[in-house]
Design a protein around this nucleic acid. Structure first.
Lengths: 207, 207
DNA sequence: CGTTCAGTTGACTAAGGTCAATTCCCGTGG
DNA sequence: CCACGGGAATTGACCTTAGTCAACTGAACG
């Protein structure tokens, strides 16, 4: 259940262009050029994208909404790898880069508007104009930094501290996304998250 | 205690050039150009590099040897973030990219030969020739993929499984690097690693 | 030989996992 | 408007595993 909106249809308001300008750090006329390779999609709540072993050859940008990117572990359980909200990316950048098959699944947790572009399209732009090559490098830079931040979180902090960090840095995620998904994102079970919240609430009472 | 070797001194043998050609995936004459911005350093065992809050504006490539990249956690304990051996990279790519201060420390665990290049030098190359811009993108791609692999390891596997994965995928690390560093790399204490090894040995006996 | 430090082991604690029961919340249909 | 159903969240009881602190072993080196 998806609604496709051509980018030229007048719904693409100035706000979005300004946000892309800021996110990508490029001039407005370059944003127009970028949008020419983008497809705008409205996903309904509970929509599911399942890469199912195919190459994930496009990237998405969440204009508005929320989604979780998850995998099934060896035990068949869903592991929420990423919880993405407004301004975040969608996709499997490893598969995108390497052309290897992806097992990723994406579930939309709210009605969500996404801008997608395909690797081949931006690569074609990059071949013709260094500007776009530089942008693809910037995308890789951002992907690395985002990944490293998540790695640091898992490496240096306990589950409890990770929950506190998430609370303070991403209240939007706590508001939009059910606890059962937040728990596996933090690397724990829903029960453990519930107990951590209880512990923290008790400590709160004492202060 | 470091020994600096100019790259033109004849010690830079053909082997290294061939390896760089393969690692960077560039033609041999480009390797020559690349080497013109590289500095070759021999670190002694136990040498320490401490970024100490300065920007880490260079990247290293380990020709031969071993090093660990570590941080001090909030508790003042050393956390081995990366264990690097032949063919691996050295540095703090986040600091390199963003220009933000780095708290990273690097300890050499063996006499280690490293090729370094500075960000400003490769950026200058990249400004003049798209070829080198594409290479800097490739470096970011590789940094991302490397980071994601480590993240997956921490996210999906238990400490015991992580140890088994390391054993099978990187026996070189097990051979070169003391257990006390391997343990914090795996996200556990030296005692726990010792017990995991004991458990595994007992299981081995039964089979 | 001692010294030193890595590695191991023991005893105990803390925290998350597991399985099952219960409660809470919310939307739907009677 | 209320009762019911179903999934989310919580809680309880118990287990497993890692952390902690301290003691001990063993190998390397002078």
């Amino acid at each position: 259940m998806q609604t496709y909106l051509p980018h030229e249809n007048g719904y693409m308001d100035h706000q979005i262009k300004l946000r892309l300008q800021s996110v990508l750090d490029i001039p407005l006329w370059r944003v127009e050029e970028f949008l020419s390779i983008c497809k705008r999609v409205i996903h309904q709540k509970n929509d599911l994208i399942d890469a199912g072993g195919r190459v994930f050859d496009q990237l998405g940008y969440i204009v508005d909404g929320a989604a979780r990117i998850f995998y099934l572990n060896d035990n068949g359980e869903e592991m929420s790898y990423l919880l993405q909200v407004n301004g975040d990316a969608l996709g499997d950048y490893q598969s995108y880069l390497t052309g290897q098959p992806s097992q990723v699944k994406i579930e939309f947790l709210l009605p969500t508007e996404v801008l997608y572009f395909r690797k081949k399209d931006i690569d074609r732009l990059a071949e013709r104009d260094v500007f776009w090559l530089a942008l693809t490098k910037r995308i890789s830079d951002l992907a690395f930094i985002y990944c490293k931040r998540r790695l640091d979180e898992l490496f240096f902090y306990t589950p409890e501290q990770r929950y506190l960090n998430l609370s303070s840095k991403s209240p939007e995620i706590l508001n939009k996304i059910p606890q059962k998904y937040i728990s596996t994102y933090l690397g724990i079970t829903p029960q453990s998250l519930s107990r951590i919240r209880k512990r923290l609430a008790e400590v709160d009472l004492l202060t």
